[in-house]
Design a protein around this nucleic acid. Sequence first.
DNA 1: GTCATGAGCAACCTCCAGGTTGCTTGTTGG
DNA 2: CCAACAAGCAACCTGGAGGTTGCTCATGAC
Lengths: 114, 114
Amino acid sequence: MSRRSFPAPDPADAASVFAALGDETRLAIVTRLCTDGPQSIVRLTERAHVSRQAITKHLHALAHAGLVRSKRDGRERIWQMQPRRLGDARRYLDQISAQWDAAIDRLRALVEDG
Amino acid sequence: MSRRSFPAPDPADAASVFAALGDETRLAIVTRLCTDGPQSIVRLTERAHVSRQAITKHLHALAHAGLVRSKRDGRERIWQMQPRRLGDARRYLDQISAQWDAAIDRLRALVEDG
DNA sequence: GTCATGAGCAACCTCCAGGTTGCTTGTTGG
DNA sequence: CCAACAAGCAACCTGGAGGTTGCTCATGAC
């Protein structure tokens, strides 16, 4: 990915990332992975209020959206953030915010002119 | 860092906003409201591939998340963006991105120190 | 070797998001 | 006044998200 001029994010991709973040348990997982770094399923489960299998399913959902990835390490599986998609989501929000601001400005100009 | 004046967004609120944006149809509605400005249900339905009632339900979902609001105007109901929550979501993403970057830096420092 | 531990797999349950159709209510333009 | 149009309401259907339990498999510790 070139650093200049990011392409407009695909709405379908953006929606899938937002959907992945749109669950409190998953958002908590993401937050923990961001603050505490890569870690195993049991460790992620310890402070959660659902079962290990539920956490596993959520991790797979996050992986499907491209937000996390994992690698096997001995008898553990270590999960970590994959921040690229997070950046996509941020850029998408920035984009529609900018569009909204522009629309507001147009509206304001219209009102003030006439 | 940036914008310390904003309180840290409530994870539950953030999750509900992300969930609202996590559907392609709703994301399209938001985009259209941002680019084309406030408009009625029929107008929003015209270029959509689902029924008017489906659009109505999505609008209510967005309203529940605080992303849009509406007012009655004659026999129409006009819907428009309410960009505050959008800002909350952006800030939340910025926050966890920053946390991730910090974690990466800590990890790197640890590795380099030995 | 064997046992405890971390993870994977599968079946199952429940609930609600997302969609539809059909009808009613209200407003407005002619 | 009334016909057409925008929206609201209600009932209904379906798939899949989110959760659980129970079992098996693999690996590391001792």
